[in-house]
Amino acid sequence: MALDQSFVGRSYPPTDPYEVGREKIREFAVAVGDANPAYTDPEAAKALGHPDVVAPPTFVFSITYRAAGLVISDPQLGLDYSRVVHGDQKFAYTRPVHAGDRLTVTSTIENIKSMAGNDILDIRGEVHDAAGEHVVTAWTKLVARAAGTTTAKAADATAKTSDNAAEGA
């Protein structure tokens, strides 16, 4: 069943602050095999002009995706999470996330489309620090595949519908 278009533009309340820790950044950098000292050595980060170690560019997704859970699990929206695949992801940074940040996320449904039985949901997550300053915006495109299709087929459908969308843009 197609998602309700009237949810486009709906925003969800800001999340409780997520406190970014040096060791969590280190754990993430190690997991992606990235030895850039700006992620683990506060002095190296300061030499680049940052107040503390910075997080790799995609680190913040863990925080914004958790926040997007408010949308995904909204019973009124009725998205079937078991059918969801990740279509696109984009970030726009005012500054990098760094250790010591206390980040809140405000999620907004930017767009809802239905294509070939797939529901396509665009969620924007605005990330702000404790001072209320903008840090990064994350755009996440989720595709809930049509019932009866497999994840692999849905991934193909994602590519096709997204390409069509891009061509139409």
Partner: peptide, 12 residues
């Protein structure tokens, strides 16, 4: 400097 990245987007 990882902080030099201003925008980053992909399609899966």
């Amino acid at each position: 400097d990882p902080g030099a990245v201003v925008e980053y987007g992909v399609r899966f």
